[in-house]
């Protein structure tokens, strides 16, 4: 879902940069007082895992592929603000070093795959706590949160393309939401699998997002 330069108009790109810049600045402010010793390596390895996993495109229907985004996993483990910082690290390196996602579009890509995806996932995951606290609930809640994070981010992307005048909304919206409803299943399964692994080995790491 990395938007290259050219797909979005200058005003949309500018709004994206302002929103992303403001959010990252706030995330820095909000997280620096609550950075514990355990969070430091976790921020590094989560960013590394998300970058590597994003390279592994998996095939979905009709000669199309999808890849893991990772914002849901980051937000569930470390909260939405640290999730935004982790996704920003990944997206900036992808943009500057690997030319994946345009330079002008960087703000919009951070908005979609960092900010929107992190907040959607975090709130759905926290909301799922209303249905109990068990291991199964956490896995289902995490998987659903991950699916929605990709689906809603793709809807945001469709609106950005439409507002930019690149493609009409009535074409972009069903196409983006349809394909990413499938890609989101992969996101949900990977997120649940990683959460399952963490619960089996280091369950204490799941408590860090409350800090």
């Amino acid at each position: 879902m990395h938007i290259p330069d050219g797909f979005i108009s200058a005003p949309v790109a500018t709004v994206g940069c302002v929103v992303a810049g403001g959010s990252v600045a706030y995330a820095v402010k909000a997280t620096k007082k609550k950075m514990g010793e355990k969070q430091i390596p976790l921020m590094g390895v989560l960013a590394a895992f998300i970058f590597a996993a994003q390279m592994l495109n998996f095939p979905i229907a009709g000669g199309t592929s999808g890849h893991f985004v990772g914002a849901a996993l980051a937000a569930i483990l470390l909260g939405p603000w640290r999730g935004i910082l982790i996704m920003t690290c990944v997206l900036v390196v992808q943009c500057l070093v690997f030319q994946d996602g345009g330079l002008f579009a960087l703000g919009v890509n951070i908005l979609n795959m960092g900010i929107i995806a992190s907040f959607v996932a975090y709130h759905i995951y926290r909301g799922s706590a209303l249905f109990g606290e068990g291991r199964k609930r956490k896995l289902i809640g995490g998987g659903l949160a991950a699916w929605f994070s990709v689906a809603i981010a793709s809807v945001a992307c469709a609106f950005e393309l439409a507002i930019s005048g690149t493609v009409p909304l009535k074409i972009a919206l069903p196409a983006m939401a349809g394909i990413h409803a499938l890609i989101g299943i992969g996101e949900g399964l990977i997120t649940a699998a990683v959460l399952n692994l963490i619960m089996a080995t280091r369950a204490d790491l799941l408590e860090l997002q409350k800090a």
Partner: peptide
Amino acid sequence: ASSSPDGLERIAEDKGFMETAREAFFEAI
């Protein structure tokens, strides 16, 4: 990894706006 286009690239090809993509200003990797 699958080398098929991802969701957004597929739609850009199918809906005919792939050519609006601009090349990067510089290339590293």
